[in-house]
Simulated scan of single mutants.
Amino acid sequence: MTGEDSRRIAISIYAKRTARGEEVIMSPLVFDIHDIQLLRKWGICGVLSGTLPTAAQQNVFLSVPLRLMLEDVLWLHLNNLADVKVIRKEGDDIMAGITPQRGAKLARLVEDRLSKSFEYQRKFKKDEHIAKLKKIGKINDNTSTEELQRLDKSNNNDQLIESSLFIDVADISMILKDVNIDLNGPSYDDIRNLLFKQYRRTEKMQTYLLYKALRDQGYVLSPGGRFGGKFIAYPGDPLRFHSHLTIQDAIDYCNEPIDLISMISGARLGTTVKKLWVIGGVEEETKDTHFFSVEWAGFG
C-alpha cells in the first residue's frame, strides 16, 4: 500500500480490572473520522455507536466513535496497520489531569473555531442570496451596497441567516488527542499478548482463524448477532452489497458433534433472511480452515 493507505491508524482500547484483579479490555474504539474512512477501504466497517443520552438515534444516524470487533483489532495489529493504545485510566482521572490553563486554552480554541465557522456560514449564505437575486433580475453587477442592505433589511435576510447558523461539531476530541495517556505504553508484543489473552478468555482462537480466512477471501465481516451467528459476511462494502453468509463460532468438526436442532433452526433462519448458514473449523494437524454451508430446502 502507498500514500494514505500505508499509514497506521490509532485505536483506543479501554482496559478495566475486575474484582479478581484480571485485566479485561472493553470495546475497541476509533474516534478519528479519517481513520474510519481508511478502515472502510481495508474492508473493516465496524459499528458507529456515538449518540447523546437525551437524543437517542436509530443506527443509521449514530456517529463516532466506531466500535470494532476484537477480531478486527487482532487482524489490524498482526498486519501492522494500527497503533493500538491501551487506556487504563478512568475517565475521571483523565479529565482531572487537565490543568485549568489547558482547559482555558481549549475553551478559547473552541470559541475561535466556532466564530470562524459562523463567519464562513454568513458569507456563504449572503453570496448564495446575492446569486439568487441576480438570477431573478432583482439586482445586477452595478447594484450599490446601500441598495443590497436595503433589500436585506426589507426581507429580514440577516435575521433569517442568523437563525439558520449551525454549530459544527468536531470529529475528533481535542482533549483525548492532546492528553498523554501513557508515556511508557506497551510494546507491539505486549499489545499482541494482551489481545490474544483477552480473546482466548472469551472466544476460541479457531474463530479468529475463520475470520482471517474469510478476510483473505475478500469478505467484509460484521457482528452477526441479529442473524443468529458470530459474523455476517458481505462480498464487498455493505453499502453496495447485502450480506451472503451467517458464520457460526468455530467447531472441532472432526470430533465435536453438531447439534441437529441448531443446524435446522439456523438453516431455516438463514433461508428466511436469504443467507447461507455456515459452520467451520480448523484442522489441528494441517491448520487448514474448512467451511460448510447449510441451506433449508423445505419439504412437500
Rank of each mutant, 00 (worst) to 15 (best):
D83K: 08
L48H: 07
A56R: 08
Q37E: 14
D92M: 02
S49R: 11
L39N: 03
V60W: 05
K123D: 09
T99M: 02
L148H: 00
N142V: 13
D141A: 09
I36M: 12
N142A: 13
D83W: 07
V86D: 02
T99G: 03
K153T: 07
Q58V: 15
T54L: 11
K116C: 11
S63D: 14
K135T: 10
I44V: 12
G103H: 05
N156I: 00
N157D: 02
W75E: 04
K126S: 04
L148P: 02
D72S: 05
R102V: 13
L81W: 07
S49K: 14
V169Y: 10
K134F: 05
I161F: 03
R67T: 15
A170I: 08
D92Q: 09
G103W: 06
M69K: 07
R67G: 01
R67C: 09
Q149M: 06
S154A: 08
H129P: 01
G97M: 14
Y120W: 11
R108V: 12
I139T: 13
V110M: 09
L109Y: 03
K105F: 07
N140Q: 01
M95A: 14
N140F: 01
N142H: 00
I98Q: 12
L165W: 04
P65I: 08
T54C: 05
I44F: 05
G46Y: 00
D158V: 11
V169I: 15
Y120G: 00
L148K: 06
T143G: 03
G137C: 06
N157M: 14
P53H: 05
K125T: 06
L81C: 08
Q58K: 15
I167K: 11
R67V: 15
L165S: 10
L68P: 04
D93Q: 08
G50N: 04
